[in-house]
Design a protein around this nucleic acid. Structure first.
Lengths: 140, 140
DNA sequence: CTCCACCTTGGAGCGCGCTCCAAGTCAACC
DNA sequence: GGTTGACTTGGAGCGCGCTCCAAGGTGGAG
């Protein structure tokens, strides 16, 4: 297909945008419907969506927020603040800081659980190496 | 209520077990129904559940697996292996190792996204300190 | 001009992990 | 003996985040 190879146009179709962001076209439409994007995505004369670099950059940020567990609802709030324009920067920063703190806490918790799981693996490894049967005290 | 204070009985009611594990009674029943526990929980003559130390230890492990993102289905597989008894240790260990690897990968990914989010916060902080308006290039 | 892949929409469906409800049982206390 | 309250069950419901469907329009290749 190779659409958008010409000089003047750097927009992408939804399939291209999906490939570029790692999302599916379904998800991209869903995000737009749900108010997660800054504006409605541009359209070609056919009605097909055309994603700009700015769209992609924003979607990239969205995927970072999603991948760190921020709920859709909260991302929408952030997008709302950005749409409101200048003056909402303190609120935006506060929202991101709150999320950062939540992610840090989550990382710490998961890291702790991981250490316990690794110890359990070590127990299995030792057991298997020595041929010792399962101790009652450590069921599982 | 103070049930279970006597010497011979160290079992807990479902409410006590819930308090001890951080889960709800709903969730504890659900886990049991769904085959996540090693055996059906003991019952008092009234039919009420009585959780033993062994139950609590296992549930504690379940919460670690859940908190690190292991799906219910996979935990059930692990419980199935434990129920099958001796001989399944290599499979159990392999399952835990696969999970450990997934968790490590997840931690790495989240950590990377977190760094990007922190940089974005720094941009806001600098902007707010200097009174500079929002640069177009970094929408949001 | 036809074909076919890709796009559009509103709305339904799904998988997950709980979370809750209704109706009934039981133990303990007054 | 009656009331209270924690417990029991099977099954329904919910919030989240997609994921998909049906019916129809678009546009570049042959």
């Amino acid at each position: 297909m190779l659409r958008g190879v010409t000089e003047e146009s750097r927009t992408l179709t939804i399939a291209e945008a999906a490939a570029a962001t790692g999302l599916t076209p379904y998800t991209l439409r869903y995000y737009e419907r749900d108010g997660l994007l800054l504006d409605a995505v541009e359209r070609a004369s056919s009605g097909h969506r055309r994603y700009t670099e700015r769209d992609l950059g924003w979607i990239h940020l969205l995927t970072r927020l999603r991948a760190t567990g921020m709920p859709i609802r909260e991302i929408r709030e952030y997008a709302d603040l950005v749409r409101q324009g200048e003056g909402t920067e303190p609120e935006r920063m506060a929202l991101l800081q709150a999320h950062r703190d939540a992610v840090r806490a989550q990382l710490a918790e998961v890291t702790e659980h991981l250490a316990a799981i690794e110890m359990k693996i070590d127990v299995y490894a030792g057991r298997l190496a020595s041929g010792t049967p399962v101790p009652e005290a450590a069921a599982g």
